[in-house]
Amino acid sequence: MEKREEQVPPGKAMSMEQHMLDKGAQMMQSLTPIKQMSQHVCTFALYSHDLSRQIETHHYVSRLNQDVLQCAVYDSDNAHGRLIGVEYIVSDTIFESLPPDEQKLWHSHAYEIKSGLWINPRIPEMVVKPELKNLAKTYGKFWCTWQTDRGDKLPVGPPSLMMSPQGASMGLVRPDLVAARDARYNISTGAMKSGRAELAEPEWINPQADYWKQHGKGFVVDVEPVEMKKMAPFP
Rank of each mutant, 00 (worst) to 15 (best):
A79G: 12
Q36H: 13
D222Q: 13
S52P: 01
E87S: 12
K230H: 12
Y211N: 12
V173I: 15
H80A: 10
M192T: 11
P175V: 04
D50F: 00
Q103R: 14
S115A: 10
Q166E: 11
M170H: 10
L135R: 04
S30W: 02
L132C: 02
C144M: 14
T138N: 13
N78S: 12
F234I: 06
E125A: 15
S160L: 07
R122L: 13
T57Q: 11
S188G: 13
P175T: 09
E96D: 08
M1P: 14
K23R: 10
H59M: 12
Q29K: 05
G190L: 11
I89R: 04
V220H: 03
L177G: 13
P121D: 03
A197D: 08
K141W: 07
P202D: 02
V86K: 05
H80C: 07
K153Y: 09
P100G: 01
M162S: 08
Q36Y: 09
P233Y: 02
T32Y: 15
I34S: 11
L199H: 05
E6G: 12
H107N: 11
N78Y: 05
R184N: 13
E201T: 14
R82A: 08
H59R: 04
H59K: 04
S76D: 14
E87Q: 08
A179V: 10
L154G: 00
Y88E: 04
S62W: 10
P158F: 02
Y74F: 12
L21H: 06
E112C: 05
A191T: 14
G171D: 06
E17N: 12
I94T: 07
Q39L: 05
G218F: 00
T148G: 04
E87P: 00
A183S: 15
K129Q: 03
V173W: 06
D101W: 00
Q147G: 08
I84N: 08
P99A: 05
Y88T: 03
L199G: 13
L46K: 03
A180H: 12
Y139A: 10
I34Q: 14
D50R: 00
S52L: 00
R181S: 11
M37E: 14
M20W: 01
Q29P: 01
D210A: 06
T57K: 04
H40Y: 08
T32V: 07
I94L: 13
K153N: 09
L154Q: 10
R181D: 12
E112D: 14
M1A: 14
A200W: 02
G81E: 02
R184P: 04
S38W: 03
I94K: 05
S76I: 01
K114N: 08
G24M: 06
Y60N: 09
A191N: 14
E131C: 03
G190F: 04
M170C: 15
S188Q: 11
S91I: 11
Y88N: 01
R184L: 07
V156I: 09
D149L: 01
D176N: 13
R181M: 14
E102A: 08
V128A: 06
M162F: 04
E5L: 12
Y88F: 09
Y74W: 02
L177V: 03
D182Q: 10
L98Q: 12
W146A: 01
